[in-house]
Write a protein that binds this DNA or RNA. Sequence first.
RNA 1: GGCCCGUUCGUCUAUCGGUUAGGACAUGAGAUUUUCAUUCUUAAAAGACGGGUUCGACUCCCGUACGGGCUACCA
Length: 500
Amino acid sequence: MSIRVRFAPSPTGALHIGGIRTALFNYLLAKKQGGTFLLRIEDTDQGRYVEGAEAYIVEALKWCGIAPTEGVGFGDGPYGPYRQSERKAIYQQHALELVEKGKAYLAFDTPEQLEAMRQTDPQNHVAYGMHTRMNMINSLTLSKKEVAERLAASEPHVIRLKIKENQSVKINDLIRGEVVVSTNELDDKVLMKADGMPTYHLANIVDDYLMKITHVIRGEEWLPSAPHHVLLYKAFGWEKQMPQFAHLPLILKPDGKGKLSKRDGLKFGFPVFPLAWESVDGFKEVGFDPKALLNFLALLGWNDGTDKEIFTIEELVDLFALERVNKAGARFMYDKAKWFNQQYILKNTNDILAAQLQPLAIAKGYHVSLAYLTQVVGLMKERVVFLNDFLKTGYYCFEPIKTYDAANVLKKWKRERRPIYDNLNDLIETLDLNAPVAVEHQVKEWIQQNGLKVGEVLPVLRIALAGTMQGPAVFDMMSVLGKTEVSKRLKAAFDYLDGF
RNA sequence: GGCCCGUUCGUCUAUCGGUUAGGACAUGAGAUUUUCAUUCUUAAAAGACGGGUUCGACUCCCGUACGGGCUACCA
């Protein structure tokens, strides 16, 4: 039987990289085993629903290249609908089934009454459960008649799972091994809310069962409620169909203080979203290659046991194994993420990079040929981390110099030499700039003939061509820029330097 | 507070009882280079602590400490 996994985010905003990694691991396992990866939208909290979040999730998964093959936004499938808000009746029916079986009960307590219960011992958290439920207002303490009356008056109520005492619940986690918890520690979780919507716990179990999910791969924050989930499977009599669990280690803030959250992007100054959200740039906007992002995320909590760090998605699919996922949380380090991107820039061919760069160049108003972009890529590749950097640090390949960083060069610039420099410009016009090695040879010869030093001429040329002291080899820049542009820039720079 | 999970260089990690504890990021130094970057060489850098088990423990067990998660009619 082929496996079925699911990514089930709640549309409360943008997905962050923690969610992406969860989706990635689901994707990898599904691909590796030839199974199905589906997207289910868990929109059961009407209060936290955010317009556009669902579309964002779909787009983000597509951009990352880990698109599900079934579910919301991906053509649905045989077990729809895949949006929980559209399955209300199913949950209602299942919750009632549990009530009838005596596994769950109705509770009419008001928020004030719940608060009063909790205040009976403010030091500790008092839970609604086996120790307290008989003091509360529910179908366990009320007579059948009273319950019927309250129902008839459509009094707000929830349905809670009735946890039996003195039992131990075992979770066999694929990553953590066996985790055992006593039911005495468990509270009577709400299954159906007063607004008629299910809670995560009920919806999740019912859907995973109905959608024939075989592996639940989710974040570690769900481990504490896993016992409830196991109990729910038992209550329904679905033990044999119960999926296997794998709770992933959390992705932590760079300072290690807590799990990474959506606000941390602003706080620490790096992207946490795949795509821009509410005017906060995502990895895409910053210039990440999604493949590099995925590669980085895959290594946050997983490795293949070797020193290898750069993996294609195909390799990840091939090598992935839940058994090799770590247990401890991993801090998100932006520097390492950048390094991965740089590696991807370096490993891509100039043609591929140029093609990726073209839309960005056009967006910036740089209407240049693909051939030219390919040359620029070759020139700048080794000093760039993001695709956008070609356009930013390499702007002088597309437009005239904006500012000259002439401070260092001025020491070497001597006004009386202007005629000699003009003479150099004349020389350059006679050369074939496409042969940088030869040009270098000839220019150096010229430098010698004029009694100058390489160290005093090249910096001047560099400033003239790029405006900055940093950058590619001077003669390579000449080759890319072309004779007309080089000549123009030389004249402009000489004039500028003369102005001091 | 309670429950659960975790703990190897600053960070991500390898090691599945016997290693000079390896790699990568970041950092320092050097080489290459007209500059920057790339590349290469190199340095510094770790098994939280205390008990066991064992001929032998980073590895297994227990405890402590520390960290994280959960503790909602949120997911």
